[in-house]
Amino acid sequence: MAKSILLPIDYSDPKSWEKALPVAREQAGFYGASLTILTVIPEILHLPNLPDNYGDGAAEHVKTKIKAILVEQGCDDLKVEIRQGSVYREILKYAHAEKIEMIVIASAEGDFPNYEIGPNLARVVRNAHCSVLVIRD
């Protein structure tokens, strides 16, 4: 039984949430669990030719996009967390730190022989301390 569920999504990729969000909500309802949405912004490298404040506001921009998706889906009451760094590492770190008991994650299209299992998904499944429910497209 899960009391806390994590759904990592990418606001720019509807495949990451269109099927997974309803399943995550269903699981949360079934178990009476909390559901948290997590988005990871890839780390922005600070190169010499970029201004020091390059990337400022990215987290707020992403959070606004995520909130719009949740409003559209009728679940704007969900907790939203934004992290920056390596996608799979941040998912695993957050899940561990918050004692998440289930991760619901959508698969991505992949090439043979790893159909729909991208590198981030594979690492989350392989290294998560909790159950991982993969929603295939």
Results as ranks from 00 to 15, higher is better:
12 S>D: 11
4 S>M: 03
98 E>R: 12
71 V>I: 11
125 V>C: 10
24 A>V: 04
110 G>T: 01
104 V>G: 00
37 I>Y: 09
136 R>C: 10
46 H>E: 13
2 A>L: 11
46 H>L: 13
80 V>W: 01
48 P>L: 00
96 H>V: 04
36 T>K: 09
122 A>R: 15
11 Y>N: 06
54 Y>N: 11
66 I>F: 01
96 H>A: 13
104 V>A: 03
30 F>T: 14
84 Q>H: 05
120 N>V: 05
65 K>Y: 07
39 T>S: 14
84 Q>E: 15
106 A>G: 12
68 A>L: 02
25 R>K: 15
63 K>V: 05
53 N>W: 12
105 I>Y: 01
132 V>T: 12
75 C>T: 15
28 A>N: 08
32 G>V: 10
77 D>A: 10
13 D>T: 07
2 A>P: 02
118 G>F: 04
44 I>C: 00
98 E>F: 01
49 N>I: 08
82 I>Y: 01
78 L>P: 03
51 P>H: 07
122 A>D: 15
5 I>M: 10
92 L>V: 09
132 V>S: 04
131 S>V: 08
22 P>T: 06
99 K>C: 01
29 G>M: 07
33 A>C: 07
50 L>T: 07
65 K>D: 10
3 K>T: 13
49 N>S: 10
125 V>P: 01
67 K>A: 10
102 M>W: 06
57 G>D: 09
87 V>N: 04
110 G>I: 02
24 A>S: 06
112 F>S: 10
36 T>C: 11
95 A>M: 06
50 L>P: 00
56 D>P: 01
110 G>R: 03
77 D>H: 14
11 Y>Q: 13
134 V>C: 11
15 K>A: 14
37 I>F: 10
33 A>T: 07
49 N>F: 15
103 I>R: 04
7 L>R: 05
126 R>G: 10
99 K>F: 04
126 R>Q: 13
72 E>Y: 01
5 I>W: 08
120 N>C: 09
9 I>E: 02
71 V>K: 14
113 P>Y: 09
25 R>E: 13
90 E>C: 13
119 P>C: 11
93 K>G: 06
87 V>Q: 00
57 G>L: 09
27 Q>K: 14
71 V>A: 11
109 E>Q: 11
57 G>T: 06
70 L>S: 07
69 I>N: 09
28 A>F: 11
81 E>A: 13
106 A>V: 07
119 P>H: 15
43 E>P: 02
12 S>V: 03
11 Y>V: 09
81 E>T: 11
23 V>Q: 02
44 I>E: 03
106 A>Y: 03
